[in-house]
Design a protein around this nucleic acid. Structure first.
Lengths: 198, 198
DNA sequence: GTCTATAGGGCGATAGAC
DNA sequence: GTCTATCGCCCTATAGAC
């Protein structure tokens, strides 16, 4: 039999999520997490550089998106490339139940919310060079990415709420909504009521 | 003569910025900052809840934006309200030199970058209820805000680089750019080259 | 102001697996 | 022998409690 239980990292992650749920992030010590996983505090830091990272290990989403962008048809416009990449990322957001638990814990702690945001920013940083390699100018690449991430932020909660619609479809809906939002106003008509706004 | 030097908070902020510039954020201790400002470490925490906050005190931007949204013509579409609000925020981004120094320090430290992101998110959180009070539905409010923040993120560096154009104008340019990016592709033409993409 | 728990880094020891 | 996961014990600084 093995000298150590296997999957130490997974044990730490599961123990941490549960402890954060019941006690909150701030009132859970690293020693407690390590203990619950059958390890010592010092070993925790072999797997995670700091306490927050225990909820953010793995870059599967980033890896998927970058790979999708690199593999995309060179003729596609950047927006479509990114929409397709995110639309095919459904499996990464599973199981939903886990995602929801994790999201609740993150929302309950400012420290974790900060980390969550920078992880998104890291994804944007990784996507930008991939778009540039397709010939998209640097500033524009970052801009399109930010817009698509806003679309995603809009569509994801709906996908979590109604499992029957595909994420790709909800992203397309969000895009249509954006077209309405930024439709040029008809300035001369403004006094007669808001042009396209609801 | 006064018992204490005045503007303790300002002294701490200036000392911190300079120390972060020369030594980096991580290698600067709170005691060092307090020392340079002629205070004790404990006093630092009377002004800032944690070390990072010393670069993020003051919510003038948030206050300005919320006030602008509340004061805006009720007939304006949400996008225009937010564009106007951000376009009139130029004075808050001054002096540019300070903003640039601060931005460099933030970019150099992941810990500060995290805090910076959540400050933006806080602004979004504050704007959403203000838009809702104008009758914008909750999910859509947050969506429009995210889009406008993406526009701002795109426009601000350009404004910093070329002082002669107004921020409002650059925001309008970014909006026009977004209309191109988001323009519906002409699917049947796709084989003949990218429709509106450059 | 003082005291203290905790975060988190450095370095080396140990003890199996190979 | 080497490699690698784990632990032990050092340390400082942060940040909250008192």
């Amino acid at each position: 039999m093995p000298r150590w239980e296997s999957d130490a990292q997974g044990r730490l992650e599961r123990a941490a999520l549960q402890l954060f749920e019941t006690q909150g992030f701030e009132r859970t010590s690293v020693a407690q997490i390590a203990d619950a996983a059958g390890l010592k505090e010092r070993s925790f830091y072999r797997y995670f550089p700091d306490k927050r990272e225990v909820l953010f290990a793995g870059n599967e989403l980033e890896a998927h998106l970058v790979a999708q962008v690199e593999a995309a048809d060179p003729d596609l416009a950047p927006l479509e490339v990114l929409l397709t990449a995110l639309g095919t990322a459904e499996e990464i957001f599973r199981p939903r139940e886990f995602l929801l638990r994790r999201a609740r814990v993150i929302a309950a702690s400012p420290a974790l919310a900060e980390r969550d945001l920078i992880k998104l920013a890291d994804i944007a940083d990784a996507l930008a060079p991939a778009l540039e390699r397709r010939g998209v100018e640097r500033g524009k690449a970052r801009f399109v990415i930010d817009v698509v991430l806003a679309l995603h932020r809009h569509a994801l909660p709906r996908w979590l709420a109604e499992p029957d619609t595909t994420l790709a479809e909800l992203m397309a809906q969000a895009t249509a909504e954006l077209r309405e939002v930024i439709a040029p106003p008809a300035p001369t008509l403004r006094r007669g009521g808001r042009p396209l706004a609801r």
